[in-house]
Amino acid sequence: MLHRLMNAWASPLGRSLIAGLCLAAAGGGAHAQAYPNKPVKIVVGFAAGGSTDKLARVLSQRLGEVLGQSVVVENRPGAAGNLAAELVAGAQPDGYTLFMATLSSQAINPHLYPKLKFDPVRSFEPVALVAKYPLLLVVPPQLGVNSVPELVAYAKANPGKTFFASSGSGSPAHLAGEMFRLATGTAIQHVPYKGGGPAMLALMANESQFGFETIPSAIGHARSGKLKGLAVTSEKRSVAAPDLPTMVEAGLKNFAVTSWAGLLVPAGTPRDIVAKLNQATLAAIQAPAVNTALTGDGAEPGGGSPADFAKFMADEHKAWGEVVRSANVKVD
């Protein structure tokens, strides 16, 4: 074997072939060493100012420091995150276009939109789970409701006239409201808005009687007194609102809703780049400034390997499919 290799090396063609094989073998390492050599983009499927956007911006600064390149956030709102997902699914698989995927885009929308232009699994490579966060049940102070049982009583006394606001049809906030309807047997009506911000404004104006919204988006309004928090949808009380009960503590059995967000890249992105992004994301999440920002907003920092995130998304896809079917949720 050695004799044949030496003979091959003696000819120009042989040297060219052997050099090519060596470069191919080293190709995986070369990807990681050269990456990144230009700015990286995180695409967010919601408008600026929302919880997903806020999370992406908190993460991007530290992620850029870890990677040694600027990381910018690009907002592409529309269709509950579907437009952003389509954009990233069709991007070059080179590690420079990331998607801040959410519970909506990966686990809820596939059950609501029959003709998506992306596959939640095949179109992407998972990088890492960034954060999980519960929702906050809020009401306008002028409603005069101070607890979940009082809200249930109000809804039963006003069938068909009790409206709940959400950040959009098919959103976690919408599905939480539908779960509330099923759990309480009330005739409540859904009012979708174009984002969590408009939904919160509608509640403050008493246009709707209650709503669920992620803690990062709603906690400031609750702390200021513009809205009244009644409960959190996590299994345990939130460190951001320790005085508020969970929905289970408030009397609704098995009521738990946790939203989440994580990074994906287009399918076909080299594994060494995915691994580098995973390591950089974990380092960014664990940085004290990022960790404090997340926990202060009631979020639970994520982590884990790409394989861990893939399994997590598969479990979420199955679980929320059952919720959509049970509640007979349709996009308005």
Results as ranks from 00 to 15, higher is better:
Leu277Asp: 07
Val239Cys: 07
Phe118Asn: 00
Ala165Pro: 05
Pro126Asp: 05
Gly50Asp: 13
Phe312Ala: 09
Ala26Trp: 15
Met313Cys: 11
His174Asn: 15
Ala8Trp: 11
Gly211Met: 02
Ala293Lys: 07
Phe164Asn: 04
Phe210Leu: 02
Gly220Glu: 13
Gly49Thr: 10
Ala250His: 04
Phe99His: 02
Pro266Gly: 03
Gly211Leu: 01
Leu282Arg: 15
Phe212Ser: 10
Ala284Gly: 04
Ala205Trp: 01
Gly298Gln: 06
Ser70Cys: 10
Ala157Cys: 05
Asp243Tyr: 07
Glu150Ala: 14
Asp53Ala: 01
Leu175Cys: 11
Glu74Tyr: 00
Trp320Ser: 05
Tyr154His: 15
His190Ile: 01
Pro120Gly: 02
Ser51Ile: 04
Leu59Thr: 02
Asn146Pro: 03
Leu21Met: 15
Leu21Val: 13
Ala250Asp: 04
Ser169Met: 09
Leu23Cys: 14
Gly225Lys: 07
Pro110Glu: 08
Ala19Leu: 13
Pro39Glu: 07
Ser169Pro: 09
Phe99Leu: 07
Leu143Lys: 03
His174Arg: 06
Val191Asp: 04
Leu294Ser: 08
Leu83Ser: 00
His190Trp: 10
Ser171Val: 03
Ala314Cys: 02
Gln286Ser: 11
Pro110Met: 06
Ala34Tyr: 14
Gly302Trp: 15
Pro134Asn: 11
Ser147Trp: 10
